[in-house]
């Protein structure tokens, strides 16, 4: 027991960071999300003379907030998202305010999916999702270089295929 030995035990961060392009990808996502309310507001503001101030003001506030988030936060997210695949397990850390470490052993992995959304393709990134037999045990690694992701998926698939058992 750690108390008896006077030790503190911590989870060490996984070894790998995501691809640097993930920062750009997150920024693009945020800017798009910001554009969804801002653009209609701005267009309406340009067209409707009497309500111009009350339409352009929220548009400006939202645009400023969205842009600031898009510039600053991804740098921070980049440092808080880490992953690692060893011979025995997949290990992922996400979040800062709500940190979450997920560990899935190789022997229990059931499926390995690689998904590349349109934005991810633009940044040559991919998301690898590793599922186990548990409804709540899926592990997602977002923002990997697409070649790294393809190699990883292939490696995981090979290892899980060679592991006997039905993974439950």
């Amino acid at each position: 027991m750690p108390q008896g030995e006077g030790e503190t035990v911590r989870l060490r961060p996984p070894r790998n960071t995501l691809n640097e392009r993930a920062v750009g990808w997150w920024r693009a996502q945020w800017l798009l999300m910001t554009a969804v309310p801002v653009v209609p507001l701005a267009v309406l503001g340009a067209l409707i003379e009497p309500a111009r101030f009350w339409l352009l003001l929220p548009a400006a506030v939202l645009a400023a907030a969205g842009t600031a988030t898009a510039v600053l936060f991804p740098l921070w997210w980049f440092r808080t998202h880490r992953w690692e695949v060893t011979e025995d397990a997949v290990y992922v850390l996400t979040g800062f305010f709500w940190q979450e470490w997920r560990i899935a052993p190789m022997s229990r992995i059931q499926t390995v999916d690689t998904v590349r959304g349109p934005l991810e393709q633009l940044f040559r990134l991919a998301t690898v999702t590793v599922t186990t037999a548990s409804a709540k045990g899926a592990v997602r690694i977002e923002g990997l270089d697409h070649e790294v992701a393809a190699d990883l998926a292939e490696r995981l698939t090979r290892i899980t295929r060679d592991t006997p058992g039905d993974a439950t």
């Binding site: 940190q99 470490w101 052993p105 045990g137």
Partner: peptide
């Protein structure tokens, strides 16, 4: 033997 993974969560307050 039925454990097929771990999820550890820690919020800022918990930390």
């Amino acid at each position: 033997a039925g454990v097929i993974g771990w999820t550890v969560k820690q919020s800022v307050f918990q930390r």
